[in-house]
Design a protein around this nucleic acid. Structure first.
Lengths: 190, 190
DNA sequence: TGTACATCAGTGAACGCGCGTTCACTGATGTAC
DNA sequence: TGTACATCAGTGAACGCGCGTTCACTGATGTAC
């Protein structure tokens, strides 16, 4: 059937929403095209009316999730205090346990490193994130803000990825707590 | 054919060596059982004489790579200086570009977080790594050595994973350099 | 010591399955007259 | 304004492929006598 033109764009967005959620939760290889379309409420056929291939969807998903993440970051990161709260929330058990709504870099960085076609999208997201963190960096001298931002982002990502991989709850919490405290320690010595 | 008993154990080890190498380079999903067996010089049939399933191989691979990594760590991490060199080498372009010989946590942590069957092996490796780092920790007070170790390991892992995901060579180097300098900064303020 | 037999790691064809992708068809919507 | 037709997103069966896994068979090695 032919559908009202407005619905097409809306469906495109809905596919991206569902795909981002599922990919972040289970990885690119862990979700099939059919499953994404089913979550969107369609059969798998029309997928190719919207995307050239699964890999094209993967790249567009990173851009889509990036836009959402940057909008959220902009709303909280207007002050050093906002940045500190963002960092604390990032290194929380809630974020560790909610991959689907969580950080796209923590979810995709390792896979992206193995898929050259996806690097450009993740690189752009990382650059934009670094820019926002650096602008309101609450630690040490402004001169070192960019380098300190990268250290902080690396520790945040590594902390969440490690805490998710542990099957020992206490150890998982200890990792998050240690990274949180350590990064706040950087602040106190500014 | 029946083979001399000694060869069987040796083949088992060879499968683990090749599988570890390939899995680290391309991920668990990116390598087939047949490819591993071919790399070992065998057809894919006898795989099941050695392992119950691909997932069992994956778990055993983590243990196997862990033993090798810990042995290497023990040989260099007997002094604070050795630890510092280890950290620098970890955050080098060489390590970034050589996944196959590189850190198993950087290669497997994200996938392990999604596969409950693998968590136990990676948790054990992380605990052993923390123990060794803490014992010879070259930073700050001994009292905080364990927490500082976890911060350092998180930043190292995150730094390498991020640098591998970038398609911008200069940015990739900048991440490694920033994390390296930042962690050394922690030392100078000990 | 020599011979017949049992063992069992290795072989490679085959199976079943799920996946990404294609395609002939459907039918409500938009358009031409 | 009413009617006939063209459009094209959606449908769902089908295809080809690679994968994990199985299995009947092979034949050199180890063992029993």
């Amino acid at each position: 059937m032919r559908y009202p033109a407005a619905e097409t764009a809306e469906k495109h967005t809905r596919i991206l929403d569902e795909a981002s959620r599922l990919f972040k939760a289970r990885g690119f290889g862990g979700v099939s095209v059919a499953e994404i379309m089913k979550a969107t409420g369609l059969t798998h056929g029309p997928f190719y009316n919207h995307f050239a291939s699964k890999e094209a969807l993967m790249a567009e998903c990173i851009d889509h999730a990036s836009a959402a993440a940057l909008a959220q970051l902009d709303s909280v990161a207007e002050t050093p205090e906002g940045m500190r709260d963002y960092m604390r929330a990032y290194l929380s058990a809630d974020h560790r346990d909610d991959r689907a709504q969580g950080c796209l870099m923590a979810a995709f960085a390792e896979q992206t490193g193995r898929e050259p076609g996806l690097s450009a999208s993740l690189t752009a997201h990382f650059k934009a994130t670094v820019e926002r963190f650096t602008r309101h960096f609450p630690w040490r001298s402004k001169k070192a803000a960019r380098a300190d931002t990268m250290l902080m982002l690396a520790a945040m990502l590594g902390g969440v990825v490690l805490s998710r991989a542990m099957d020992d709850k206490a150890l998982s919490e200890e990792i998050l707590e240690s990274v949180r405290t350590g990064l706040e320690g950087l602040a106190s010595r500014a």
